[in-house]
């Protein structure tokens, strides 16, 4: 059973202009997407830059205004009460940011950074708070003497772990991770990913994992959605997406991922050029006259793909 549903979420940014600074046009950053979250599952959101994946994450947590659509959390419509101090939604949905460094206040010590959500939501006594901070630092594998240090004294991977400690401070249900490892080196990235998997199993967390790295998403996520221009072009589980991609855009994205094996790279290059040529020739069939992706249709219980023009009714 899903504990949270997102229905037909739309986020439009107005473009203002003219004499009275009226709204003359709008950017459709997120244009009607629906998602359901189940406990303990990881959901991947993949797309190129500018496709609206970060906006989706931000609007779910309440950092962006929602134009239309609704978010239902445990049976309650929370669309307009996402940042309410008293709402459990605000406590249960947390976020990990891409750039760990700029997401931590440079003038606060680590203990105050981690304590912030605790002070906001949990109402603990100072002793209990201290114990909780030590506990959290132990979970993310850091020394207790880190408490009194400032963010700049840590390496990139450590800062990201402080960010994670802050996110899990109030035992959230869903963590929105916006490119949590793309700024990190390979070996550090492995540390953070392993760690995120560990706490997922331990606390039954759900993730919304936003990334452009299909390798990382494959490693982390059970359910993957591919986004293009604010809409889903395909969504399904790992096998659906990686072994049986249906949409022309998914195929193009998958063919572009470099393979960590030099053997057969000439063939891969040929295949890539073929897929690209196929995309250039046929992509019009998959988008409407405004370049918008068509609605999703069901292929199997898990696999959904956007329709082509023929199926839509031969536009």
């Amino acid at each position: 059973m899903s504990f949270m549903q997102i229905n037909d979420l739309k986020v439009y940014y107005p473009i203002r202009g003219g004499f009275f600074n009226t709204v003359v046009d709008q950017v459709t950053a997120v244009d009607g997407i629906s998602l359901e979250f189940e406990k303990g599952k990881a959901y991947g959101l993949v797309g190129e830059s500018g496709c609206g994946k970060s906006t989706t994450g931000k609007s779910i947590i309440g950092l962006e205004k929602i134009t239309s659509g609704s978010i239902v959390y445990e049976g309650q419509n929370v669309t307009h009460n996402r940042r309410g101090r008293g709402s459990s939604y605000n406590r249960d949905i947390q976020m990990i940011f891409q750039d760990a460094h700029s997401s931590l206040n440079p003038r606060k010590r680590v203990q105050d950074i981690i304590a912030e959500p605790i002070r906001n939501f949990l109402n603990l006594s100072p002793d209990e708070e201290k114990r909780r901070i030590n506990e959290l630092l132990a979970i993310v594998g850091m020394n207790e003497d880190a408490k009194l240090k400032y963010p700049h004294e840590f390496s990139g991977g450590q800062k990201q772990r402080i960010g994670i400690a802050r996110a899990i401070a109030c035992n959230p249900k869903l963590i929105i991770a916006d490119e949590p490892v793309s700024a990190l080196d390979l070996s550090v990235q492995a540390q953070v990913l392993n760690f995120m998997k560990d706490i997922q199993q331990e606390f039954g967390l759900s993730y919304l994992f936003i990334s452009h790295d299909l390798g990382v998403v494959k490693h982390m996520c059970d359910h993957i959605s591919i986004m293009y221009k604010g809409r889903f072009v395909e969504s399904g589980n790992r096998q659906d997406i990686y072994t049986n991609p249906q949409h022309i855009y998914t195929k193009r994205l998958l063919s572009a991922i470099p393979d960590v094996n030099p053997v057969g790279r000439e063939e891969r290059k040929k295949e890539r050029i073929e897929v690209e040529a196929n995309y250039t020739a046929n992509h019009k069939n998959y988008y409407d006259e405004n370049g918008k992706v068509f609605d999703l249709k069901k292929l199997s219980t898990t696999h959904f793909v956007a329709m082509s023009a023929h199926e839509k009714g031969g536009i």
Binding site: S187, Q189, A190, Q191, L193, G215, V216, H219, I257, V260
Partner: peptide, 20 residues
């Protein structure tokens, strides 16, 4: 060798990544 083992896509999905 450690670097190669820490690449996500080479491992099977649920295996742990090698950490340096």
């Amino acid at each position: 060798r450690s670097l190669f083992n820490s690449i996500p896509q080479m491992n099977s999905e649920n295996e742990k990544l090698q950490v340096i």
